[in-house]
Amino acid sequence: MSGPLADLSYRHYADGVVNDRAWWAIARNGFRGTVKKKGFWVLTAMSSWWYAVVLVMVYVFEQIAANSIRQQAQDRAVDFISSITWNRVILDGVSFGQIFYLFLALMAGAGAIANDNRTNALLVYLSKPCTKMDYLIGKWLGVFLPLVLAMLLPQVGFFFYGAMSYHDYGFLRQDPWLVLKLPLLAMIMAAFYTSIVLGMSSLFNQGRLAGAISAAIYFITNFFTVLLGGIIAAGASMESSTTVSTPLKLAFYGSVDGIMIATAKGILGEDQGGLPLGGPQNNLSVPALPLWVPLLFSLVVAGLLLFLAHARVRAVEVVK
């Protein structure tokens, strides 16, 4: 400070100042705002439908194994449960949950910056002891944390139920690291979705528009990769071949959904999902990429969008 000033020692500003974590105040506000919505819990529940289906199926087969009067039926039921690859179940769960993760991300993040742009709320935020980086980190965490929660809850629920009920069928033995892989996967997926939605949100002045564009990117890229998946599957079937060229694999995983599935495959160490009695596996039949490929791709895309957000976030509209 320079220059003489009046005695301002009576000021009370510093009373009660405990931290400089403006980003945490913003993050917590975003988190609370999202988890208070009924839609958040509905979508979270819907995203876990595959786990529910698997648990019901396993329960039914368990009952058959225990109660059927026919030995053959009992044996088949035990064989079914014993031959389940639990990581594949989770891979399927992650795959089928993608659309719900998208909706959750849109609910939590599409308006996060766009609405502030529309109402010029940044004028207030940035007039507090809060930097642009505080604001961005806070907004990012405010979307990321509810998404992690939504992604992790069904997986953790399934894991603990499986660990308690199906340890005799190899639930814990198959992959002892699964308990660590699940939060890692949830965090990577949540970070990716958050970065995309927040980046798009920063480009617009209306949350709905940002959400619509984000959804369009998701669905358009997904449409082409599903189409490509069909072509790959048909080609492999015609040639009775199981090999897929690297460019085709890259193209197949070239969508929001695809990148996340590739990441899930890499982390879970599975090339495909499905239950022993033939679960849906079409879009998971393409072999996994090395984990670093989807991670690097995610990082570049997320970094680019966050860079855009950083450039866009400012308190005033500058007239060009």
Partner: peptide
Amino acid sequence: RHMGRLAGYGRTEANRR
């Protein structure tokens, strides 16, 4: 209160202010 938290106050102080 949210603005109070942004200003760096703890929950109790932000609420009081």
